[in-house]
Nucleic acid binder design. Structure first.
Length: 563
RNA sequence: AGUCCCAUGGUGUAAUGGUAGCACCGCAGCUUUUGGAGCUGCUUGUCUAGGUUCGAAUCCUGGUGGGACUGCCA
């Protein structure tokens, strides 16, 4: 059992840096931000960043902003803005009144650009895309300076103003910082600050036709917001010298950028481009498909915010590439739901059982414990009668030697009820099992203490005439290899798990579930955790999603034996 | 190849010059009216070669291995 409580971040190198900054007085507070681009839904990797940024600020008594880095109108959309806000909230974090957009700063950013031009540190380049690319060179070889680099300040100012005023077409000119075309750091080879895009922005509409590049907008946005610690992923390490250059030339507040390694999960893909492809090409039903590694997918799948936070906070931060085992996430939700989820009985693949010595019209209301981990959750009544359903895989006609469940002539306990014995297997003309004829031992009623008979197995069941029909969606991993995008020669789509979803329409659940509400989570005893689907479940037809199975040592025995 | 970054069991992380610890996985056992949960035990690790030091996972140097950078994306 981990002694890391929720939201508490274990010691790590970022906290060491913050401690030092506070100690030497570089900053006297901690103010972080979570800066997504609204061009897709948040995924589990973002959850790590969210928990880190909000968690760190909380721990140091500071604040966290939510800021959308919306500098590319072509890819961004309000749908994504709304989904991101919902997901951050659902995870349990509050940006209060600090909801910002990089587009809020377009005017300031423009003024900053003018300042740079006036300092002789930025110029308008009228070269083509191809020329600029060619002149930039490659990392191991210096680039060459553009022939437009020597334009006068007046000329630059005039051209830039015209760019802003819409007097040019897309791509005709760009504004570039004047730094060093021979720098071994590509980001310092006169990076582009503004490009012309006659496109409608989701917030600024058609007010602008020049848009700042991310590199020009991001660091200054942090600065404008008074961010002290800009936590970002490793790929921006090489950008830090550039951000520092901007901040110093502009003489504005200087946040400290700290990079950490993004989280990858095995058996999943995380890039927004790939997730978008899964959605657009209908490999999944949407961004919130329960198989997606998105926050909304996990939410619909039945994950709790606590389980995701615990998962994120229990992992630490590093600077090397890491691939987390998905079993850790699965373990995290099991751990949470084990303590919280009400237990019920559900029979996924029913076979009928008739208790031949049970009175025909008798019904008993048996006591069932709602959660053995939490007595305060109480008990409920479960109806028991002559005709029952049990799960098909709890019966083996020719039992495996370690099989502790029902088979001909053998006894098994029905959970909360009686020990029964299988007397006869009734089959149809094709040899399929139609019904099991069993007898029950009246002295073995749960809690009665009349018999000290012991059996090795206990199985779940539902009363046939009381059970409710339900659809159950069994979700499994979306990919069947640990690293679906590991091989550049093979499309990740090839690695999709064809069995990632199995739909069962004839499942039977105990009557207690009649009033189960969308999103409500249960443990189906001996099977796993399931939640009521928030979109498709109705009063007439319950639909359950399997969140995760219980740990299954029987499956291991079976697997070992088949080898 | 140029610059930058990184390297602790299978995985993920601690140890901040002083006994390499924890969690997950795995294995064995106990317990159990969920083959769940819980409990106990076990296996497995400091990339490498030097140096500094009484003492190095930690500091220094070289090597090896991995990653990032060559969008008018973020």
């Amino acid at each position: 059992m981990s002694d890391i409580t929720e939201n508490e971040i274990p010691s790590n190198f970022i906290k060491d840096i913050i401690d030092e900054d506070l100690r030497i007085g570089r900053f006297n507070k901690v103010h972080t931000r979570f800066p997504p681009e609204p061009n897709g839904y948040l995924h589990i990797g973002h959850a790590k960043s969210i928990c880190l940024n909000f968690g760190l600020a909380e721990e140091y008594g500071g604040k966290t902003n939510l800021r959308f880095d919306d500098t590319n109108p072509a890819k961004e959309d309000v749908e994504y803005v709304e989904s991101i806000k919902e997901d951050v909230k659902w995870l349990g974090f509050d940006w209060e009144d600090r909801l910002y957009f990089a587009s809020d700063y377009f005017n300031t950013l423009y003024d900053y650009a003018i300042k740079l031009i006036k300092k002789g540190k930025a110029y308008v380049d009228s070269s083509t895309y191809e020329i600029i690319k060619e002149e930039r060179g490659v990392p191991s070889k210096p680039g060459v300076e553009s022939k437009y680099r020597t334009r006068t300040t007046e000329e630059n100012l005039e051209l830039f103003t015209k760019m802003k005023n819409g007097e040019f077409d897309d791509g005709e000119h760009v504004l570039r910082a004047m730094i060093d075309m021979t720098s071994p750091n590509m980001n310092l080879r006169d990076p582009i600050l503004y490009r012309i895009r006659h496109a409608e922005h989701h917030r600024t509409g058609n007010e602008w036709c020049i848009y700042p590049m991310y590199d020009w907008a991001h660091g200054q946005s942090d600065s404008i917001e008074g961010i002290t610690h800009s936590i970002c992923t490793l790929e921006f390490e090489n950008h830090r010298p550039l951000y520092n250059w901007f901040i110093e030339e502009l003489e504005i507040h200087h946040p400290r950028q700290i990079e950490f390694a993004r989280w990858n999960l095995d058996y999943t893909v995380m890039s927004k481009r790939k997730l978008l492809k899964l959605v657009e090409d209908n490999y999944v039903t949407g961004w919130d498909d329960p198989r997606m590694p998105t926050i909304s997918g996990y939410r619909r799948r039945g994950y709790t915010p606590e389980s995701i936070r615990n998962f994120a906070n229990s992992g630490g931060v590093a600077k090397r590439e890491i691939i987390i085992e998905i079993t850790r996430l699965e373990n995290s939700i099991r751990e949470d739901l084990n303590k919280k989820a009400m237990r019920v009985m559900a029979v996924l693949n029913p076979i009928k059982v008739e208790l031949t010595n049970y009175p025909i019209s008798q019904v008993e209301e048996l006591d069932a414990v709602n959660n053995p981990e939490d007595e305060s959750m109480g008990k409920r009544k479960v109806p028991f009668s002559r005709e029952l359903y049990i799960d098909a895989n709890d019966f083996q006609e020719i039992p495996h030697k370690k099989f502790h469940r029902l088979s001909p002539g053998k006894e098994v306990r029905l959970r909360y009820a009686y020990i029964i014995k299988c007397e006869e297997v009734i089959k149809d003309s094709e040899g399929n099992i139609e019904k099991l004829l069993c007898t029950y031992d009246i002295d073995t009623k749960s809690g009665s203490g009349k018999s000290d008979k012991k059996v090795k197995g206990t199985i779940h069941w539902v009363s046939a005439k009381h059970a409710l029909n339900a659809e159950v969606r069994l979700y499994d991993r979306l990919f069947n290899v640990p690293n679906p995008d590991g091989d550049k020669a093979v499309d990740f789509i090839e690695h999709l798990n064809p069995d990632s979803l199995e739909v069962l329409t004839n499942s039977m659940v105990e009557p207690y579930l009649k009033n189960a509400k969308p999103g409500e989570r249960f443990q189906f005893e001996r099977l796993g955790y399931y939640c009521v689907d928030s979109k498709d479940s109705t009063d007439e037809k319950l639909v359950f999603n399997r969140t995760v199975t219980l740990r299954d040592s029987w499956a291991k025995i079976e697997k070992q034996n088949s080898r």
